[in-house]
Amino acid sequence: MQLIIRKVSRILQNHNNLTAVYALVVIIVAAIGLISIAAGEITFEKDQLYPKTINPDSPLNPYDRGGSPFVPADIKAQYPGNFPAIGYITGYLSPFATALIKISPYFGTTIVAHPGGILDEILYATRGLDTIVETSILFVAFTTAMFLFRRDEE
């Protein structure tokens, strides 16, 4: 008994084994996941927020969220009441983008990020806090990298 404890604690106390130990835990949990899928516990809920519709004829395909500039699109948000201007941002296209649509039927395939493209109100408004946190993470990571980089320079 004592030997086992010693042995385990010897593995645990080496910081180089940390990721390996954690990886093992993740593998165990993933195995539990497989079992619960087999048991039918994990089923896809078909009633999802912000469902994706694909309109192959739209020049904005596959990023067509519906709506046209200054006309709100139909959005299925969690709490639509919290954002009265819902649907407007998604519907908006810059004049330049509007012009391009008429020329190119494949405007959407450039993953255009015109407001109203990939960056719609999920990212801007209704779930904007996510994006704020995400940019803050990037900000902090860059600060760390730059701090170390610059300190090395001295």
């Binding site: 912000y50 999920i122 990212l123 994006t131 995400e134 940019t135």
Partner: peptide
């Protein structure tokens, strides 16, 4: 496969 998933990938990627 929803628009929301698309929006969640971006933060995930950036992190």
């Amino acid at each position: 496969g929803t628009d929301l998933a698309e929006a969640l990938i971006l933060p995930g990627l950036v992190v």
